[in-house]
Simulated scan of single mutants.
Amino acid sequence: MARSPKLEAQLSIRPGAGAPFRKRWMDLLGSLESEGSITAAAKAVKLSYKAAWDAIAAMNNLSDAVLVERSVGGKGGGGARLTPQGKRLVATFRAVEAESERFVQRVNRRVQDKADIATLGRMTLLTSARNHFAGRIASITKGAVNDEVELKLPGGNRIVATITRESTQTLGLKKNGEAIALIKSSWIILGVEDQSQGAPTMKLSARNCLRGIVSRITRGAVNSEVVVDLGSGSSVVAVVTNASAKALGLAPGKPAQAIFKASSVILGVPG
């Protein structure tokens, strides 16, 4: 059964500039307080012994007061204890973290449609690809090296992607599961129906052909960006040369086909 989407928060503290606050460092200090051993604390937060000491040194350097006092060769391979300032810092962080969690729980209770949360989650994806399509996996055809994954979009269109078997397993792809298809605009070929009498019907090896109506063309010095409306609120963007756009007679309101190979589709899953 698919897990119902919900909001989650990861506390991030930014001092106005520089790198974000490292939550794992506070987890390390908290574990050091409860475990009484740097070895056990490092293991609890999945850090190496050296990485734990490096983090402690960095925190001590960044703090106005010493947070951790150390003595080599103590219990569990190296003695370390939190100073009063260190304990206070951990307590402050836990209080802020708890308040953040209470806020998120209140928001989750007030959200009426959990599907909205899933939609917001998909919008956090940052990529250079112009075309993003969210859908559900209709089928997975497994091969020795590559798998063929068919994605059904909300409007009824389908996109076929060819990915490695390893990628299918890494992404945890399953039938009826959610996935996102990414296609760069430069990977899409545009085509139009030849209306002349006796014109031959072209057959292509590309697995994907999305039919729609040209809604917008933005012309540049060399290339044109063409938006094809697929219906149901979906669209696809392709970049073609100005010469190709002219030769195909592309214009707003004209039918067009967006053609791309299955190997040109990148699949992702919500985090």
Rank of each mutant, 00 (worst) to 15 (best):
R3V: 14
R3L: 10
S4E: 15
K6M: 08
L11I: 15
S12L: 15
P15G: 11
F21L: 09
F21T: 05
R22S: 08
M26L: 15
S31L: 00
L32A: 10
E35G: 01
S37Q: 13
L47I: 02
K50D: 11
K50L: 14
M59Q: 11
V66A: 08
E69S: 10
G74L: 04
G79P: 00
T83H: 09
Q85K: 13
L89P: 02
T92G: 14
V96T: 11
S100G: 05
E101W: 06
R102W: 06
F103H: 10
F103K: 08
Q105F: 04
R106D: 14
R106P: 03
V107Y: 08
V107W: 06
V111I: 15
V111R: 01
K114C: 00
K114G: 03
A118I: 00
R122V: 01
T124M: 14
L126I: 11
A129Q: 02
A129S: 12
R130Y: 01
I137T: 05
T141K: 12
K142T: 13
K142W: 02
G143H: 06
N146L: 12
E148D: 10
G155W: 00
I159E: 03
V160A: 07
A161G: 05
T162A: 10
R165M: 05
R165P: 02
E166Q: 13
S167F: 08
S167L: 08
L171P: 01
L173C: 07
K174L: 07
G177L: 04
K184M: 02
K184G: 02
S186T: 13
S186V: 05
W187A: 03
V192P: 05
V192I: 13
V192H: 01
S196I: 05
S196M: 07
P200F: 08
P200H: 01
T201R: 15
L204M: 15
R211A: 09
G212T: 08
V214F: 04
V214P: 03
T218N: 12
T218K: 09
T218G: 05
R219E: 13
G220A: 09
N223D: 12
S224F: 03
G231W: 06
G231F: 07
S232M: 10
S232Q: 14
G233H: 09
V236Q: 04
N242T: 03
A245G: 10
A245M: 11
A247P: 02
L248Q: 05
L248W: 07
L250D: 04
A251M: 08
K254W: 02
P255K: 05
A262G: 13
S263A: 13
S263F: 00
L267F: 01
